[in-house]
């Protein structure tokens, strides 16, 4: 089993999520939050796949795929909405 690898990968992914979340909270513009959300999404896909590896259940991959699809649509919609100008 690849335990030390899994531990290291999980720690690094957690670090990435923390930094992304910090940018999401800080902003300062709405679009910065959208960008942070998009970054978080991509990291989350890897995180979900890692969770699948830990639990040994392939269903997590479907979750990752659907998650990637939905948040992609969300990012596009949010960006198009903010295109008209923000305060």
């Amino acid at each position: 089993m690849a335990d030390p690898f899994l531990l290291a990968a999980t720690a690094l992914v957690a670090l990435a999520l923390g930094l992304g979340l910090a940018r999401f909270l800080r902003g300062p513009r709405a679009l910065d939050r959208v960008v942070a959300f998009d970054g978080l999404t991509i990291v989350s896909v890897a995180a979900i796949a890692l969770a699948g590896l830990v639990t040994g259940r392939a269903i997590y991959l479907d979750v990752a795929l659907v998650y990637a699809l939905l948040s992609f649509l969300g990012v596009i919609v949010a960006a198009r909405y903010l295109e008209g100008g923000e305060q």
């Binding site: 990968a9 999980t10 670090l15 990435a16 923390g18 992304g20 970054g39 991509i42 990291v43 890897a46």
Partner: peptide, 8 residues
């Protein structure tokens, strides 16, 4: 995962 952290 290291690249992901660098992205963050």
């Amino acid at each position: 995962a290291a690249f992901l952290a660098l992205g963050g």
